[in-house]
Design a protein around this nucleic acid. Structure first.
Length: 226
DNA sequence: TTCCAGGCAATAC
DNA sequence: GTATTGCATGGA
């Protein structure tokens, strides 16, 4: 239903890629609808990773401003972030908020990324990096490294507890488990579903009362869907 | 003015 | 283990 309502979301957004859709909500440019072949290289992979860190409790347009500032400084690579002056880094990412913490997170992550030497990290390895929590780890694995880990966020919890499908007090891992146990373990499905939940929640679950005009909720209650 | 945004770590209980 | 708090900018 969500896919029918909103279409493919083309996550993860990148600043530079061919076949982009500049009109997509929340993106200046860089969505890649119907195209799951990104990222194509280590640089794009890294851009997704730092975007995942920068978007912690922050709206995507603010993150894009930060990414564009970094691009201006030619600092969208792990080596460049590692070398970049800390104060300059803070200034560049200021639009994304929490700039003191996030600058530190980016420095630490850049080092971690370099040490990977092209390998895919495990979930536990990511969780052991300061600044990477469960959602950021899963986002990095799912969208940058194409590992099927379902991403849970505040929206997921809000929407699905409203739908009566999960408990309000359910933990991150519990919610993740529910989705993964009830979906085919498929990369495209995991990528698209999470993105669609975010799009749906932005429309109906951003301000209270939540889910007021949620057509999905109505359809589920009346079972008028298949 | 107040609330909110694709969380996380530190701390308190 | 679970609950609370600080972190910060900018849009609605």
């Amino acid at each position: 239903m969500l896919l029918k309502l909103y279409g493919p979301q083309g996550w993860w957004p990148l600043l530079n890629c061919k076949g982009i859709n500049p009109t997509k909500t929340g993106a200046i440019k860089g969505y890649h609808p119907n195209d799951y072949f990104y990222p194509k290289n280590s640089k794009q992979r890294f851009e997704i990773c730092i975007g995942a860190i920068l978007t912690q409790n922050t709206s995507w347009p603010q993150v894009e401003k930060a990414l564009l500032n970094l691009k201006e400084l030619k600092a969208l690579t792990s080596e460049a972030i590692k070398k970049l002056n800390l104060e300059k880094l803070k200034q560049a990412i200021k639009p994304a908020g929490y700039f003191n913490q996030k600058a530190k997170k980016l420095k630490i992550f850049a080092e971690f990324y370099i040490n990977l030497k092209g390998k895919t990290p495990t979930r536990d390895e990511l969780l052991n990096v300061w600044g990477i929590g469960p959602e950021t780890a899963d986002s990095i694995l799912l969208y940058a490294f194409k590992v099927p880990e379902f991403v849970v966020d505040a929206y997921t919890k809000r929407v699905f507890s409203h739908l009566g499908i999960i408990n309000k007090t359910a933990t991150y891992n519990k919610i993740k488990e529910i989705f993964e146990n009830n979906l085919p373990k498929n990369l495209k499905i995991y990528q698209e579903y999470h993105a669609l939940i975010v799009e749906h929640a932005k429309r109906h679950y951003s301000k209270k009362p939540y889910g007021k005009n949620d057509s999905l909720l109505k359809a589920i209650k009346t079972k008028s869907f298949k």
